[in-house]
Write a protein that binds this DNA or RNA. Structure first.
Lengths: 192, 192
DNA sequence: GCAATTTCTTAAACTACATTATTTTTTTAG
DNA sequence: CTAAAAAAATAATGTAGTTTAAGAAATTGC
């Protein structure tokens, strides 16, 4: 089955029988994107929650002066969307783009709402996904408040080594909340 | 019924019949705490998720040099815990204390795990709670990365006006990730 | 109700990080 | 394969926020 990765991901938290599996697969839309594709642009309505089958994605906020802040990177086996705007169906704050050629499973808002009703186990599944996402973001808040840029950089390298090799330093800097120039300085200090 | 607030809170997202309501209430432990009580200390196992019936609480991280970072405030109708440590049952990173006399409903980890099985609707309830918590924390990350301390302060005042009046400026500063001295400066500039 | 403690303010000196500018290196497109 | 564009490095100058210190105001504990 080509859908292996997403079924394994779901199986981490709930188990589905054959019919449930078939139904779940039936509402997913698999799509392949070249490098630098836009999955979501700010201002658009965010229709889908997205599972990364393969590739690398980046979600970022662009402020009024054009400065970008990277909110998250997503690699294989991660879910990514602009959750706030997906849930409220208000215009997106975030942009989501592929950093490399990527294969994505899309799950539409209406299909997810129906999925919760037809297969309530998915409430559990997404409860765990949301819980983990909350814990991750809260840890990031703690680190942003209490650590220096250099400490945050080393934590990032340890936590997401594969991501660190696939993205530019400019993008890492925008994830850490510093300028590329300052990241460059941190890196050159370190190598001494 | 004295438990009104928590039942109303649950009713925002799911509806319970009489038996379900009775069972849910039976696993809650209501407790009243004076001002400045410790609900959770770093290093302890976090046994409960907590609903604030009345009062004000603060969750904060204390780093190795003793510097505090306020992670969240909770007032009436909010849920608060060290989610990471509650879920994993590892020693807590956070401290949680009452800022005022507060009445709390405690829900034990084992009781919650059983509640999910006995009344699966609660998966939906906490899915929504976690989803909202995730969205809130992500917004905070965006704001910490892209806004100045002064902008964050004004957003805080607008978003949590009741909290702003109940807590000290030192605590607000530690929520914003700045020193009390700098907050004082921001405030005196503003009043011109 | 008063002494002790904590909080808040102000201000000068300092630092982590930003900005601007220039050069070098790497990546991309055709 | 080459030209153009983007990313990265280096360095000088600038600034948002910190540190330290000291006095004034508010809160707390007995």
């Amino acid at each position: 089955m080509i859908d292996n990765a997403i079924l394994k991901n779901v199986a981490k938290h709930i188990s589905l029988d054959q019919d449930e599996t078939a139904y779940f697969l039936s509402i997913l839309k698999q799509k392949k994107y070249p490098k630098k594709s836009n999955i979501l642009k700010e201002g658009e309505i965010c229709h889908t929650i997205n599972f990364v089958q393969s590739g690398t994605l980046r979600a970022f906020y662009r402020d009024t002066e054009g400065k970008e802040s990277t909110i998250m990177f997503a690699i294989s086996d991660w879910w990514i969307t602009d959750m706030s705007c997906f849930i409220s169906q208000q215009p997106a704050m975030l942009n989501i783009e592929t950093i490399e050629e990527s294969t994505i499973f899309h799950l539409q808002k209406e299909d997810l709402d129906e999925l919760y009703i037809k297969i309530p186990k998915f409430e559990r599944f997404f409860r765990v996904i949301m819980q983990n996402a909350y814990i991750r973001e809260q840890l990031r808040v703690i680190q942003n408040l209490s650590l220096s840029a250099e400490q945050r950089y080393h934590i990032f390298l340890n936590k997401y080594p594969q991501v660190a090799q696939q993205v530019t330093q400019k993008q890492i800097a925008s994830y850490l909340g510093i300028t590329p120039e300052f990241l460059s300085m941190i890196r050159s200090n370190k190598n001494k």
